[in-house]
Simulated assay, not measured.
Amino acid sequence: MITQTKRTQDMLTPVEAYRILKEGNKRFEQNLKAQRNLKVQVIETSMGQYPFAAVLSCIDSRVPVELVFDLGIGDVFSIRIAGNVVNKDVLGSIEYACKVAGSKIVVVMGHTRCGAVKSACNKVELGNITSLLSKIKPAVQVIENSQKEMDEKDMEKVAIENVQLSIDRMKQESEILFQMEKLGKIQIVGAIYSVSTGRVDFFESDSDLT
């Protein structure tokens, strides 16, 4: 696999970036790896970086973005925060990735059995965690059934809803990202990673990215 350069990044479209991520996850799921020399990539990226993707994901130790998509050094901006929530710093990071550094796709990726989602569903309050979980509460409220405690299936629905709401916030609160997607310069997509299988399921169908 080649190291991303300004030329290869410029040649990629959002659709092609999406395809690279899907193919990388398929290899990961099958326990395969693309051949790459990481030491060479360290050297080749030492003078500059041209990642083709930005991925907002959870801090969960079971969801290492570069491994999940079988990526190398210099391929992706990885923004990690508990519950893959959106705040100004996250938005600024993604704006930099796309507007300044040229990334072609933004993926908001939640995952199954998410501790932050479970804590939000259970209404945990603890230090600064309380403020973070408040950003997941809108997703909880969409799914919540006041007649009973939320079960595991409900919590997985919250994780999916939380990804969608994070995407909505991204588009509402970042004029830069909203306009870039409107002009076709980037694509913003949602996904859920299964900690049991290693599979990433994207919300959008392939027809949405053509």
Rank of each mutant, 00 (worst) to 15 (best):
M1D: 13
I2G: 11
Q4S: 10
T5E: 06
D10K: 09
M11W: 07
T13C: 05
P14D: 05
E16Y: 05
E16K: 14
N25I: 07
N25H: 07
F28Y: 15
E29V: 13
Q30D: 15
L32K: 14
V40E: 14
V40W: 07
M47Q: 11
P51Y: 09
A53Y: 03
A54K: 07
C58V: 04
C58H: 03
P64G: 11
I73Y: 01
I73T: 06
V76T: 15
V76C: 15
I79F: 01
V85N: 01
N87I: 02
V90D: 01
E95Y: 09
Y96R: 14
C98F: 07
K99N: 15
G102N: 07
K104R: 14
V107L: 14
H111N: 03
T112Q: 06
V124P: 04
L126S: 15
N128P: 12
T130C: 06
S131I: 03
S131K: 12
I136T: 02
I143D: 07
N145C: 05
S146I: 11
K148V: 05
K148P: 07
E149L: 14
M150P: 00
M150C: 04
K157M: 08
I160D: 06
N162D: 10
V163Y: 01
R169C: 12
E173N: 15
I176H: 04
M180A: 06
E181N: 09
Q187M: 12
V189D: 04
Y193R: 09
Y193Q: 09
G198P: 02
G198M: 01
F202M: 10
D208F: 10
